[in-house]
């Protein structure tokens, strides 16, 4: 006959441990299930992701807004993201900064001049004509924007005609907006 221990559940023996862990697992699964939606929302927030992934998501979000023709919303979203970069003292990748957040380019960047002078002026023309519903002029302004980007990135004597992924998305955004 087994000698009784001091534990009130001595008759359960080692089975007590299995019982405790089983209860713990059930409780854990219950709470995880309860908060699954909250967790899902949290983990999809760009703030919780790696900077590169977050940046890509932000750009995709802008593209979706462009598909919905929300020019003003798009501009507000873009400006708020640029502001958050500046506020948190972080920088997007060079390509994203050039096309989407020119405000974040450092003062000593040679690209700043191109982004703020050449791209912005072409974009203002595009915006002006698109809002006035002058489609042929908007199309010309788009071609001007595209020409500046392509010449800037790859030059006029190159066989290679590929431009950066960000430039492609940027042009796609404004193509959607004038259609």
């Amino acid at each position: 006959m087994k000698k009784p221990s001091h534990s009130p559940f001595w008759f359960l023996g080692d089975r007590i441990l299995i019982f405790v862990f089983a209860v713990f697992d059930v409780v854990l699964i219950y709470f995880a299930h309860q908060h699954f939606q909250t967790l899902k929302t949290l983990t999809s927030d760009p703030a919780f992701l790696k900077p590169a992934v977050a940046e890509k998501m932000n750009i995709e979000e802008m593209k979706k807004l462009a598909e919905q023709k929300s020019w003003d919303v798009l501009e507000n979203v873009r400006a708020s993201k640029a502001y958050s970069y500046l506020e948190s003292n972080t920088r997007p990748s060079p390509n994203a900064a050039l096309y989407f957040y020119p405000e974040t380019l450092p003062d000593n960047s040679f690209e700043r001049e191109f982004a703020l002078k050449e791209l912005q002026s072409a974009l203002s023309d595009l915006k002006k004509h698109a809002r006035a519903k002058e489609l042929s002029r908007a199309e010309l302004a788009y071609q001007q924007l595209e020409s500046r980007i392509r010449n800037y990135e790859i030059g006029g004597a190159s066989e290679n005609i590929k431009i950066s992924a960000e430039a492609v998305t940027y042009l796609a955004i404004y193509r959607h907006l004038i259609q």
Partner: peptide
Amino acid sequence: QLNEIALAEFNHD
């Protein structure tokens, strides 16, 4: 040895 992209600069800009 210019490409179409370069010519676009003269045609649009």
